[in-house]
Amino acid sequence: MCPDNETLSAYFDNEIPSPWNKRIADHIAECASCQKRLRQFETIKNYLHEDREPSFESSLEQLEIRLAGLKPRTERVSLWKRRVAVPLPAAVIAAICIMILGISLIFSLTRSNLRTMSIRRGPSGTTEVQVAAPIEDLELLLKSLDTYYLKQEIIITLPEDSLFNITGEAMMFREAEFSRKRE
């Protein structure tokens, strides 16, 4: 049985997959009618390709001239893929700064904020107590001293060395301010 016209045309264009193309080829070999139809397709194809087209060279030159007059191309680049040119010395300085900042952050986080303060009973007091109290809880320390040593004069000696937080602000100063606000 002869393949339909569309299938034969597709066969002519090598668009029929295996094994069907083999079967069609076997049929065509013995079918004069299909051979004739194929020859017609061949004639039309030759006809289309024998015809010469106008030359495109001058047109391509015109395109080049038009392109030269256009603005430079712009490309959308994602923020994460965007590259920025930085001079090498500036990059090295920035890297060092980041490194110093990182190390100081790690150091300040791991460093204990428990500072030793000495408490004396006075003025003629004979005992001196060493208390390790976190600076952040200064308010709590004062309250507890108020409760237990209500009638006694208490002298608190703060740590002699200064302590600053990562932003450079004095820790004690910050806490004192904070306490006043809470009151």
Binding site: L60, L67, P72, R73, T74, E75, S78, R82
Partner: peptide, 16 residues
């Protein structure tokens, strides 16, 4: 985010 891309060899290759 825009980035300037100059008419380059790639585009010349495309149209040629």
């Amino acid at each position: 985010m825009m980035q300037i891309v100059k008419p380059d060899f790639e585009f010349k290759k495309v149209y040629e």
